[in-house]
């Protein structure tokens, strides 16, 4: 089932790749979170890769969304890793981050 505003693709055993689209609405994250987690859980996923390659800046609102998604994933034993973070996004995020984020980070999906 397609979820509006994102591409969620199974990329291997237990791994899912989430690519946010421009149309993704994080103002009301509740329903979106539920749909993402439900789909990964249905496919017996254990790892969610969140692709940030199209995002030049991560502000507090977007970080809160990532944090919420990562913590929701944690509650049902799914690990979330943000990949392809742009240098500008890392720079802005590092400025207001006060503790270790709930998600892991990696350059890309491991081979």
């Amino acid at each position: 089932m397609a979820i509006s505003g994102i591409h969620l693709t199974r990329i291997g055993k237990g791994n899912y790749l989430l690519e946010p689209l421009r149309s993704m609405n994080i103002q009301d994250p509740g329903a979106l979170l539920q749909h993402i987690v439900a789909q990964v859980q249905q496919g017996h996923g254990t790892h969610l890769y969140y692709d940030l390659s199209e995002l030049p800046i991560i502000d507090q609102i977007y970080y809160d969304w990532l944090d919420k998604l990562a913590r929701t994933c944690q509650t049902i034993n799914i690990k979330m890793t943000c990949i392809n973070m742009q240098s500008t996004a890392a720079f802005t995020l590092s400025k207001f981050l006060t503790s270790k984020p709930a998600f892991a980070t990696a350059l890309d999906v491991p081979d």
Binding site: S87, A90, L97, L107
Partner: peptide
């Protein structure tokens, strides 16, 4: 510390 954090956020 901010620099280290930014490096880690990029996945390094």
């Amino acid at each position: 510390i901010q620099m280290v954090r930014a490096v880690q956020l990029m996945g390094s």
